[in-house]
Amino acid sequence: MSPSLTERSDPELAALALAGQQSAYAELMRRHRDAVFRLARGHAGDATEALDITQETFISAFAALARYDGARPFRLWIARIAINKCHDWARRRAVRRFFAFARPMEEAGAVADSAPSPEEAAHSQAELRRINAAIAGLPGNLKDVLVLRAIEGASQAEAAQILGISEKAVETRLYRARNKLAEQLRDDGPGRV
């Protein structure tokens, strides 16, 4: 009797998915979607945007599954794809902002990013929102390391492998990211976004 999908390793599931077994890819998604979502949320600072990035990540991963090297951990491979999708999202957002400001004000409302109203913000978890916004506001190279190490719990070696940098660079960037985040949160003060 063959093992169930939940008992199989990630490389085995990837091979089964490539052979056409959709339930194997569904199991890979189930295993890794929360981590990918947290990574995306750390970048975007917004749950809705993070969900879109997560979906894009898994669509791209499925399309590139034949290039997955089963000798490497699947979570590192999918994290790299997620980070690339986060960077794509940030570029698209910058372009949308540019065009929002380039158009007449009466037309800009339809293009601008929708921000929560003060009433919605008052009902949300204000402190968590403030922290997520501060993380999202970090430069990309610092944000990548902070999210991987502090939120995803990746080791220094894993983060270095995902980002294609040295372990020392991971250590340095993490130190800078934590300092910048602490400074930003201190300057903003509690309850401010």
Rank of each mutant, 00 (worst) to 15 (best):
A71W: 06
D52H: 08
R75T: 06
L65C: 09
F62H: 15
I81M: 02
A61E: 10
Y68Q: 13
S60N: 07
W77G: 02
A66H: 15
C86D: 01
K85W: 02
R67E: 09
R80V: 03
H87Q: 08
G70T: 11
A66L: 06
P73S: 08
L51F: 03
I81H: 00
A79H: 02
R67K: 15
A71G: 05
S60K: 15
A79I: 06
L51V: 03
C86H: 04
A64S: 15
R80W: 02
A71L: 07
N84P: 07
A79K: 01
R72N: 12
R80F: 11
A66M: 12
P73D: 13
K85M: 01
P73M: 05
E56K: 10
R67L: 07
R80N: 11
I59P: 11
R72M: 11
Y68S: 13
K85Y: 01
F62M: 07
A82F: 02
R72C: 11
I81C: 01
T57K: 03
I78K: 02
N84E: 08
A71I: 03
A63C: 11
L76D: 07
L51H: 06
R67A: 10
I53Y: 02
N84R: 15
I53A: 04
D52K: 08
A66V: 11
D52R: 10
A79P: 04
C86I: 01
A50H: 02
L51E: 04
L76N: 12
H87C: 03
I81D: 00
E56V: 03
P73W: 06
I83A: 01
T54I: 05
P73V: 06
Y68M: 14
S60M: 09
D69T: 11
R67P: 09
F62R: 14
T54E: 10
I83Q: 03
A50I: 10
A71Y: 14
F62P: 10
F62K: 12
S60A: 13
D69Y: 13
F74A: 10
A61T: 03
T57Y: 02
F74M: 03
L65I: 12
I83M: 00
A66W: 11
A82N: 01
R80A: 02
L65N: 08
I81Y: 00
L65E: 09
L65D: 06
Y68V: 09
F74W: 07
F74Q: 04
I83P: 00
F74G: 01
W77F: 15
A63T: 15
E56P: 01
F74N: 05
D52T: 08
I59S: 12
A71D: 04
T54Y: 03
F62G: 09
A79Q: 03
A82H: 00
L76E: 10
K85R: 09
H87P: 04
Q55C: 14
A66K: 10
C86R: 00
I53P: 04
I53G: 04
